[in-house]
Amino acid sequence: MSFPPIRPELAGIEPYGAPQLDVPVQLNVNENPYGPSEACLDDIAAAVREAARELNRYPDREFTALREGLAAYLNTDGGHGLEARNIWAANGSNEVMLQLLQAFGGPGRTALSFAPTYSMYPEYARDTHTTWVQGKREADFALDLDHARELIAEVKPHVVLLPSPNNPTGTALPPEVVGVLCEALAEASGGLLVVDEAYGEFRREGTPSALELLPAYRNLVVSRTMSKAFAGAGLRLGYLAADPAILDAIRVVRLPYHLSAVTQATALAALRHADELLGKVDELRKERDETVGWLREQGFTVADSDANYAFFGSFEDRHAVWQGLLDRGVLIRETGPDGWLRVSIGTADEMNAFKTALLHTMEELA
Rank of each mutant, 00 (worst) to 15 (best):
E212T: 03
L277E: 00
E290M: 09
E138V: 03
P24E: 03
L100W: 01
N32D: 14
F230H: 01
V25E: 04
V48Q: 04
G206N: 04
L211T: 08
R296D: 08
N91G: 11
P163G: 03
V252N: 08
R342N: 08
P59W: 13
E297W: 01
A184R: 06
P8R: 15
P168E: 07
E38P: 01
W294I: 05
P122T: 09
G299W: 15
Y118P: 00
L98K: 05
D304F: 13
P244R: 06
E334R: 15
N166K: 15
E201S: 15
V159D: 00
M1S: 14
V253G: 07
E363D: 11
E290Y: 03
L143C: 14
A52E: 10
D327P: 09
K280M: 13
L162H: 12
D248F: 02
H258S: 14
L151C: 07
D306G: 09
G324T: 09
G339M: 07
M362E: 15
I246W: 01
E38D: 15
E62W: 03
I246H: 00
D304N: 15
P122R: 09
G12R: 08
G234F: 06
N167F: 08
L358H: 09
H258A: 15
T110R: 10
L192Q: 03
D60L: 04
Q264E: 09
A270P: 02
F354Q: 04
L284M: 13
E364W: 14
A353Q: 05
H80E: 12
A241L: 08
E287M: 11
R224E: 14
D349E: 15
D338G: 09
D127L: 15
Y118N: 04
E154H: 01
R49K: 08
H80G: 03
C40M: 07
F3H: 13
G238H: 15
N167V: 12
E197T: 08
Y16I: 10
V177R: 05
A39W: 00
L259N: 06
L278K: 03
Q99M: 14
D304K: 15
F312K: 03
W340C: 12
L181G: 10
L173M: 10
A210R: 14
P174I: 09
P5Q: 10
R328S: 01
V133Y: 01
M351C: 06
G78M: 07
E364R: 07
L143T: 10
N56V: 05
T301F: 13
Y73N: 05
E297Y: 04
A71R: 01
V221M: 05
G81C: 11
F354C: 02
P24Q: 05
L358F: 14
K280N: 11
G191V: 03
E50C: 06
A274W: 11
P116E: 14
P208T: 02
W322I: 10
D42G: 00
R53W: 02
D275R: 13
S209Y: 13
C182T: 07
S189P: 00
L41A: 01
R333Y: 06
G35T: 08
I152F: 00
Q134I: 10
D42V: 00
